[in-house]
Every structure is written in C-alpha cells, then in structure tokens.
Design a protein around this nucleic acid. Structure first.
Length: 288
DNA sequence: CCCCATGTTCGACA
DNA sequence: GTGTCGAACATGGG
C-alpha cells in the first residue's frame, strides 16, 4: 500500500480522534510489529493519554499524545508507525472487536483506532523525546526539498541508477516502487540511467508533480472514513491515479504506454520489479 | 507446489 | 567508503 500519499491518507483516518482520550489499549498477543519494545510498555504509555497531533513524513507517521496524570514536566509521548508493505490505519466504531491482523487498537469513546498489518513488515515505535521527526531528510513536498537540494543529491550520487536513488528513503522519503516508475516515465528517463545524467530541474518538476498528483488522487479523494454508519474495514473505498498515469498500466501483462501506446517493458532494476516504456525511455540501460 | 507483492534490513561481495 | 544483490521477515492471491 503505502507510499507517501497512502501514508498521509492513513494519518487522516486517525485524525477524527484528535483531542480524544484513549480509554483502553489492546495489543495482539503474538505480534512482531513492536519489535524489541514490550507491548505492555506501549499500552501503559498510551492508556488515558490524549491524542493531540499527528504528522506524516515520507513513509513515517507520528502521533503525539499528552499524558493526563502528572502535572510535572516529563518527556512527551510520540508513536511512530511505518506501514511496511501491507499496513493500514482504520477508524472503526468504538466497540468493534480486534481482528486477526489487528496489532494495536486504541479505544476512545467515539472511535476505535486500528493498526492492521497481515504481513507484519510494518512497525510501531514508542518515542519518549521531543520531536523525533526532527533531523529527518526532507520529503519531496517539503519546502526544504529545493532544486539546489536535489541537484546536490544527483551530484553526490551521480553514478547510481536513477531508480535506486528514487527508492532511497534518505534521498526521496516517501517515494516507493510505483512512484519511482511513474517519475522515471515522466522525465522521461530509463530507470537504470545514472543519476548524474539527469537534468535536475526536470527531475525536480516531475517529482513534485507526481507527489502532488498522488496526494490529490489518493489522499484527497479517498474519504478518511466511509460515509455510512456502522462502517467496517471492508467498506473503505479506494481511489487510485487515473489512466493517464503509468500506474494504471504497469501491472497489466499486456500493459501499454498511456502516452505513446507502445508495449511496456518489465524487468528487475534496483532489486525491484520495474515497468517502463522502451519507446519513451529507451529499450536498454544507457551508460554514463 | 510455484510465483509474485506500493518495504526495510542485514550480510556478503566486487 | 561505494554500490549492488539476495535473503529474510509473514501472509495472501493468482
């Protein structure tokens, strides 16, 4: 699921509970999403706390909580989540029972907030610190992600394949496999082309276009919660980018380029299945 | 049974 | 130090 727009959508799904007090916390009896942190520690930190803020940063999510009890200054509580390959955040009716793949359920009076992940590649990390998101590299839609910043990236890693660089979360936080292909296709440039051969201004424009478009089509058009009362996880709708995007064609066995109609090529580049248009982007990997 | 999957991490290796 | 690659993680779908 989750690249930056899906992650932002996940954040919005929990947003209706802003200002709500957590009345109870349930954790899956056998889960690895908390990694080394005992589930009891998570539950203890969040029970009776109030959800005060949330933010998404690339593929990371942060939820901030205010502790009720001690009036003493103490380290703030932040919950960081990563959705891995199959993680989802849902808001369901308050009494909704935890399902087989629900690893964390935060109960409030009006909603239950669920972290669900059947593959368990996701993770949930408890931070007891001030602003754990500080110092992270800027995602493409961050004001700090400037043309100069991108040009410096391309210069520093000029020999790396463009796709490998796009997938590097220290360089392009929030870009994943499908957005990387979408960006290469729009530049247009072969995914294996050395980063140093790419025009920084062009890549900057296309990267921002794809990120903004993904936000519009995926995060903005999918409502945070289903409209109907008595909703269940299955009632969530799913909007994806339109057919003018490579996204809609990349997995079809007979997929063709939405720009020129040529048959798409598919092979493994940067260790990931990659789709591209041989006519628009070149049939083989160019050399530096 | 086989293969694949919008991700990250770790160890091996050129 | 660089950069790449395969395996592992756990589960479901074709």
């Amino acid at each position: 699921m989750p690249e930056l727009a899906e992650v932002e959508l996940a954040r919005r799904r929990w947003e209706p509970a802003l200002g709500c007090r957590i009345t109870g916390v349930e954790t899956h009896p056998r889960t690895r999403v908390f990694r080394n942190c005992p589930a009891r520690t998570i539950a203890a930190a969040l029970t009776h706390a109030t959800l005060t803020a949330s933010r998404s940063h690339g593929k990371r999510l942060f939820f901030s909580f205010r502790d009720p009890s001690p009036p003493r200054p103490h380290p703030p509580t932040h919950l960081e989540m990563h959705l891995g390959m199959a993680g989802r955040l849902l808001a369901v009716p308050p009494g909704h029972p935890a399902g087989r793949h629900d690893h964390l359920v935060l109960r409030t009076d009006s909603l239950a907030l669920v972290f669900s992940d059947y593959r368990q590649f996701g993770r949930v990390v408890l931070h007891r610190a001030v602003a754990p998101w500080e110092g992270l590299p800027p995602p493409p839609l961050d004001p700090c992600f400037t043309r100069a910043h991108l040009a410096a990236l391309l210069g520093r890693q000029s020999r790396r394949a463009l796709k490998a660089l796009l997938l590097d979360q220290d360089a392009f936080p929030g870009i994943g496999n499908w957005m990387a292909d979408e960006i290469c296709w729009r530049v247009p440039s072969h995914p294996a082309a050395p980063a140093g051969t790419i025009d920084p201004a062009r890549l900057y424009r296309v990267t921002r276009q794809v990120c903004r478009g993904a936000m519009r089509h995926v995060a903005d058009r999918n409502p945070p919660t289903p409209a109907a009362e008595g909703f269940t996880p299955g009632r969530y709708v799913r909007h994806v980018p339109p057919r003018t995007w490579l996204f809609q064609h990349r997995w079809r066995p007979d997929g063709s380029c939405p720009r020129c109609g040529s048959a798409l090529a598919r092979s493994t580049i940067a260790s990931r299945t990659t789709a591209w248009c041989p006519a628009c982007q070149g049939p083989v990997s160019p050399r530096a």
